[in-house]
Design a protein around this nucleic acid. Structure first.
Length: 507
RNA sequence: GGGCGUGUAGCUCAAUUGGCAGAGCUGUGGCCAUUUAAGCCAUAGGUUGGGGGUUCGAGUCCCUCCACGCUCACCA
C-alpha cells in the first residue's frame, strides 16, 4: 500500500481521512456537469449585455481541477480547470453553510477535482465566476502537482510564476506535464489534428485505409534492425515491423488502386532527437502512378495539413521561416552533391575511388563502406543540413534502393526521392519496382551486400515475390515520418516533445 | 558505445577557497467577507541521484554506478 513520501502527501492523506470521517465520499462514481467551464462563461456573457439580471439567473454545474485557490476569511476563491478552460468559483460561507466551508478550508487542496453548482455572476474586479451554492468533492489528489501561477499583465501577456520543466520528469510523468503545462496539451491536440487532416486528405484522394501486420514472420521494406519477439504456443519467432511497404504493395496485386496505412514502426536502433524506437509512419501507394505523382501528392498533402492546422503554409522552425506551399524544390541527388561538395560521384563508380575523393574533400566515412553507402554519407553530411526549405532530392543510386525502379536509360539511378524540410529527412518514395525477377535479384543482392554486416541482412520475402509474380500494376509509393512532420508543425526540436510517452531507460 | 555537461526540499533555484544546507512557491497554524502570483505573522519540510574514498571537516575534491541533456558514432 502506498505511503506518503513527504509532509505534503501526509497532509493530503490526513485530509482524505477527515473527508471520509465527515461523511464525504471522496471518489464518487458520478458527476453532474451541466456546463464546461467555457460554456458557463459563454452562457453568462451571451445574456449579460442585454439583461445583466437575467445573466445572474444563469445556473450551472461545472466540474474541474482546482488550479488556484485563495481563502480570504469567510470567502473563498478558486479557479477550476477542465478540458475546455477555467472558471473562477466564488464561495461565501453564508451561501454554502459552515460544513461545506469547513471542508473547503481544511480538506481541499490544489489538484483536487470538485463540482460546483450555482449562479453565474461577475465579481467586483470584473471576473465572470460561479457563485457557489453547492460544492461536491469529485476526486481527492494525494500527491501535489507542481504549482504554476499565472498573471495576465496589462499588455495581455501571460506571465508564469513557477514551472515544471525538468525534462526527464516531464517525460516520465507525462500526466503531470499535461496537467500543469497547457502548452504540452496543445502539442498533442495539434498532433491529433495533423493526423486527422492527413487521413481526410488521403481519403479525399481515394486512398483506402488498411491495417497490416505489426507482428511479422519476415521483416522488410527498410534497412533497420528489428525487435524480435516470440509466439509461445506457435513456437514461432516474430519481428515487429520496420515498415509497411511489402504488405501494402501486396494489396495492389489484390486490385485495390490506392491504399494507405498510418501506424507504428519499430526499429531497434539508437535514439536521438529525431529517432525513437517506435515511431509513427504514414505510407501510401497508388497504382498507375510514379514518383512524380507521389511528389505532387506529398507536397499538396503537407501544405493542406499546414493550412488546416495552422492556417498558413509559412511556418517558423528552428529560427528559419519555411514555406510549405507547392511546388517544392526538386533536384537530383547527383546535382545536389555536385553543388555542395563539388564531387560528381558518377565519375567515381568504384567505392575506393569515391572514398578517396571524399577523403580529399575532408569528408569522413568508413573506408569499407559500399559505394551506395558513401553516396548516402555525402547526402547526409553535405546536403541534408542545407535543406531547410522543402526539397525533393531525386534519383538515388540503385544499390541502396532495392524496391525502386531504374531510371530508364540510366544504369546507375533509380526513380526514388527523399523529402527534406528543416534539415530533416521527412519521407522516402519510389516508383515501385514491380518486376518480380528483378526484385528477386535485388533481394539476393542486398542479402549478399549486407551479409558481413551481422544482422543487417535483408531477408528474402518469398511470399512477396510470389505476390508480384501474379502481376503488380506499376505504382508509386511514399512513406512519411509523422512524428517529424509534427515536430515541424509544432516547432519542436526533439521527437520526444511530440511523443506522449517517449522511450526512456528503465530507472 | 565515445566525449562533454547536469543531478540540492513536492516544484523552481541559491550555497564564496573544502567550514553551521538556504530562498521563493507549495504545506501547516494564525489574521482577513470581492480575491486573482492576494497580503502579513509564525512554522514544517533534506540520506545534496546511489555506493565508496581523501580530509579534523565534503553539496563542493577523487573513484565508481545510475538517470537525463548536448554531441559524435549508428540509423539506406
Amino acid at each position: 500500500m502506498w505511503e506518503p513520501t513527504n509532509n505534503l502527501e501526509r497532509d493530503r492523506l490526513d485530509k482524505l481521512t477527515r473527508l471520509r470521517e465527515t461523511g464525504v465520499v471522496p471518489y464518487p462514481n458520478r458527476a453532474d456537469r451541466t456546463h464546461t467551464t467555457r460554456a458557463a462563461i459563454e452562457a453568462f456573457e451571451a445574456v449579460e449585455p442585454n439583461d445583466p439580471e437575467a445573466a445572474e439567473a444563469v445556473e450551472v454545474t461545472v466540474c474541474g481541477r482546482i488550479v488556484r485557490q485563495n481563502l480570504k476569511g469567510k470567502i473563498y476563491f478558486a479557479h477550476i480547470e477542465d478540458g475546455a478552460g477555467r472558471v473562477q468559483l466564488f464561495v461565501r460561507i453564508n451561501n454554502v453553510g459552515d460544513e461545506t466551508f469547513d471542508i473547503i478550508k481544511n480538506m481541499l487542496d490544489l489538484g483536487d477535482f470538485v463540482q460546483a453548482s450555482g449562479n453565474m455572476m461577475r465579481t467586483r474586479t470584473g471576473e465572470v465566476s460561479v457563485l457557489v451554492r453547492e460544492l461536491v468533492v469529485l476526486s481527492k489528489a494525494l500527491s501535489p502537482l507542481p504549482v504554476i501561477k499565472e498573471r495576465v499583465g496589462e499588455d495581455g501577456q501571460t506571465e508564469r510564476y513557477g514551472e515544471f520543466s525538468d525534462i526527464e520528469e516531464r517525460y516520465r510523468q507525462r500526466y503531470a506535464d499535461l496537467a500543469v503545462n497547457p502548452d504540452t496539451r496543445e502539442v498533442f491536440r495539434r498532433r491529433a489534428r495533423i493526423i486527422s487532416t492527413m487521413r481526410r486528405f488521403l481519403e479525399g484522394e481515394d486512398f483506402l485505409e488498411v491495417e497490416t501486420p505489426i507482428l511479422q514472420p519476415i521483416y522488410g521494406g527498410a534497412a533497420a534492425r528489428p525487435f524480435v519477439t516470440h509466439h509461445n504456443q506457435l513456437h514461432q519467432d516474430l519481428f515487429l515491423r520496420i515498415s509497411f511497404e511489402l504488405y501494402l504493395k501486396r494489396l495492389l496485386v489484390g486490385m485495390y488502386d490506392a491504399v494507405y496505412e498510418i501506424g507504428r514502426d519499430f526499429r531497434n536502433e539508437g535514439v536521438s532527437f529525431k529517432h525513437n524506437p517506435e515511431f509513427t509512419q504514414v505510407e501510401f501507394y497508388r497504382a498507375y502512378a510514379d514518383y512524380h505523382d507521389m511528389m505532387d501528392i506529398t507536397e499538396r498533402m503537407v501544405a493542406t495539413i499546414a493550412e488546416e492546422v495552422l492556417g498558413t503554409t509559412t511556418i517558423a522552425f528552428e529560427g528559419h521561416t519555411i514555406n510549405l506551399a507547392p511546388p517544392w524544390h526538386r533536384i537530383s541527388l547527383r546535382d545536389a552533391i555536385k553543388q555542395h561538395a563539388e564531387i560528381d560521384y558518377v565519375e567515381y563508380p568504384e567505392a575506393g575511388a569515391l572514398y578517396q575523393a571524399m577523403h580529399d574533400s575532408g569528408i569522413e566515412a568508413s573506408p569499407n563502406a559500399t559505394w551506395g553507402k558513401l553516396v548516402d554519407v555525402l547526402l547526409g553530411t553535405v546536403v541534408e543540413p542545407t535543406l531547410i526549405q522543402p526539397t525533393f532530392i531525386t534519383d538515388y543510386p540503385r544499390d541502396i534502393s532495392p524496391f525502386a525502379k531504374m531510371v530508364p536509360g540510366d544504369e546507375m539511378h533509380v526513380e526514388r526521392y527523399e523529402m527534406f524540410i528543416g534539415g530533416m529527412e521527412m519521407g522516402n518514395a519510389f516508383t515501385e519496382l514491380n518486376d518480380p525477377l528483378d526484385q528477386e535479384a535485388r533481394f539476393v543482392e542486398m542479402n549478399r551486400l549486407y551479409a558481413d554486416e551481422d544482422d543487417e541482412a535483408t531477408p528474402v520475402d518469398e511470399d512477396y515475390l510470389r505476390a508480384m509474380r501474379y502481376g503488380m500494376p506499376p505504382c508509386g509509393g511514399c512513406g512519411i515520418g509523422v512524428d517529424r512532420l509534427v515536430m515541424l508543425l509544432t516547432g519542436k526540436s526533439t521527437i520526444r516533445e511530440v511523443l506522449l510517452y517517449p522511450h526512456l531507460r528503465e530507472r
